[in-house]
Design a protein around this nucleic acid. Structure first.
Length: 536
DNA sequence: CTATCCTGCAA
DNA sequence: TATTGCAGGATAG
């Protein structure tokens, strides 16, 4: 075999087996298992592979170096709207070959063909820089996160579990008493028949199959019927227990005090990461028991800390950047409380006069903008009439005129191009943007507003992750990135590294991409994830 | 057993 | 009839 370090070649790992494709000789080789590690860890050997991060699960001790071109990541940048990024699916899509199942030994051949097609498409779409400088380096960052996992105190979870059981049982007893009988509280169908049948409570909303018993409905019923309040309490406790506490305890006990989650790089339409098995991006944060739950997430070393860096109002800052609206830009340049500032514009008062309620409305309107809100959507959110909601939207656009122009511009661009882009050029296809179906078309228009904002935020934090990873490595620091939650990075930091890591995280997060407005990052740290104290 | 619905957690 | 996800339990087939 010729020197592997001369040019990139494609490979596929299956269990302990490694196959490579030599494109010059059009020939597939199987590598001896004892050479597998050397090849994967040699950074001078440029490797083309497919979903390699996820294919090394049984080879966790191998450091992955020199992964130069991952065809799964490339395919995702070329088209983030696919639901299946397997080699077989992509071969069908891009190589015109209908293949259901590819034997492992032929994989490198197909991966190489995909590489040829996808590298051209990356060039055409001007995604090469984003691909090589951000997405490919990120693969190693995510692999390290997945391999390292994080430390969790199962004892804290067990204590919490007992407390939740106690409260859930109390709620259950109360509900059955008021209902006059026992039933399956987890069945919306049975619950509806008790509430709206036996108890004759007037139903407020329908679902496809019956009457709705969701949070919104229960909240309204709770004003008049105590049973609704108790059901909400039960639901909260049951959710906490079944979705978080029990699965976390099981995972942690299986792996001696550590938790290993996945961070998926090709899952979302916008460029965000997703997390699964378990999903660390939806660990509860509101309420006393959520706080208890987060206290179970602890540093690896006894003298260590959990440190978080959190982008402040990043999506609105990106909106200010993209729209160039002078009011919005000025507000951020002066480091104002943006929701309070928006309230002064909407209600025509001085900032000292803004009430808590007014600020809350302004905050919800600000969020609504990011989601491409309608008056109906906002009215539901604010629990007011659609006409009043429309007034807020009109006032908002009068005060932030360039935001309005930006939204119109991006929607027209989407109609013309069939996609929208982020600051770093990441594209989101919008297949339904000109659909004759009104619902689909309007949905795509909201996505056209949201995707550049959400996606640019993803760009920003990905750049920061790559730079922080390399800075930690270069400075030989042992702090580890353990969780990413879209606009927040969480680290496991040895005690003696705290100051250095704090400065480094703040700097790289704030300087990831220069915007027309300052970017602010709040750093907090503590002895566990539940008790983080802000740094001045 | 899988698919779908309803529900609810996060940014 | 506000954006993006993941996941639980119940239920239908």
């Amino acid at each position: 075999m010729e020197d592997l370090s001369k040019e990139p070649f494609s490979l596929f790992v299956s269990g302990q087996e490694l196959f490579i494709f030599d494109q010059r000789k059009n020939c597939i080789y199987q590598i001896e298992p004892r050479d597998l590690r050397n090849i994967l860890q040699d950074r001078s050997i440029r490797k083309i592979s497919h979903g390699l991060k996820d294919r090394l699960f049984s080879l966790k001790e191998i450091r992955l170096e020199g992964l130069w071109f991952d065809t799964e990541i490339a395919a995702y940048l070329v088209d983030s709207s696919l639901s299946d990024y397997s080699v077989a699916a992509l071969a069908s899509h891009y190589l015109g070959r209908q293949i259901v199942d590819i034997p492992a030994k032929f994989m490198p051949y197909f991966i190489y063909q995909l590489y040829k097609v996808l590298s051209v498409k990356l060039e055409e779409k001007k995604l090469t820089k984003l691909f090589f400088e951000t997405e490919m380096p990120l693969v190693s960052v995510l692999r390290d996160m997945e391999v390292e996992g994080l430390r969790v105190d199962a004892g804290v979870l067990c204590d919490l579990s007992r407390e939740v059981d106690k409260r859930a049982h109390a709620a259950e007893t109360k509900i059955f008493e008021m209902a006059g009988k026992k039933f399956n509280l987890n069945s919306p169908k049975q619950l509806a028949s008790i509430l709206f049948g036996e108890l004759k409570i007037p139903p407020l909303k329908k679902t496809k199959t019956g009457y709705s018993t969701n949070e919104e409905v229960l909240e309204k019923l709770a004003l008049q019927y105590p049973i609704a309040e108790a059901i909400m309490e039960y639901r909260y406790l049951n959710k906490l227990k079944t979705t978080y506490i029990i699965p976390l305890i099981e995972d942690v006990e299986k792996s001696k005090g550590r938790l290993y989650a996945r961070f998926n790089q090709t899952a979302t339409g916008t460029g965000r990461l997703s997390s699964s098995s378990p999903n660390l991006q939806s660990i509860p944060i509101k309420g006393e028991l959520s706080f208890w739950l987060r206290r179970a997430f602890i540093p690896t070393s006894r003298d260590g800390y959990i440190l978080s860096g959190d982008y402040s109002q990043i999506e609105l800052r990106i909106l200010a950047h993209l729209s160039g609206d002078s009011n919005l830009v000025a507000a951020f340049k002066q480091d104002l409380d943006i929701h309070q500032f928006t309230a002064t514009l909407l209600f025509g008062v001085n900032k000292e006069e803004v009430t808590v309620q007014q600020r809350d409305i302004a905050k919800r309107v600000n969020f609504g903008i990011i989601y491409g809100m309608s008056s109906y959507g906002l009215s539901k959110e604010l629990k007011i009439a659609p006409i009043e909601a429309q007034n807020f939207i009109d006032d908002y656009f009068n005060r932030y005129p360039k935001v309005k122009e930006y939204i119109e511009r991006i929607q027209q661009l989407a109609e013309k191009d069939g996609f929208v882009g982020t600051i770093l050029g990441r594209q989101r296809p919008l297949a339904e943007i000109n659909s004759p179906n009104v619902q689909l078309r309007e949905f795509a228009h909201r996505q056209a507003v949201n995707a550049p904002i959400q996606g640019s935020c993803a760009d920003l934090i990905k750049v920061a992750m790559v730079r922080i990873y390399s800075a930690l490595k270069q400075k030989k620091l042992n702090a580890k990135l353990i969780i990413q939650i879209h606009d927040e990075l969480i680290f496991d930091v040895p005690g003696e590294e705290l100051d250095q890591v704090e400065a480094l995280v703040k700097k790289h997060m704030e300087e990831a991409i220069a915007l027309k407005v300052p970017i602010r990052v709040n750093i907090a740290y503590g002895k566990n994830w539940g008790e983080l104290k802000a740094i001045a």
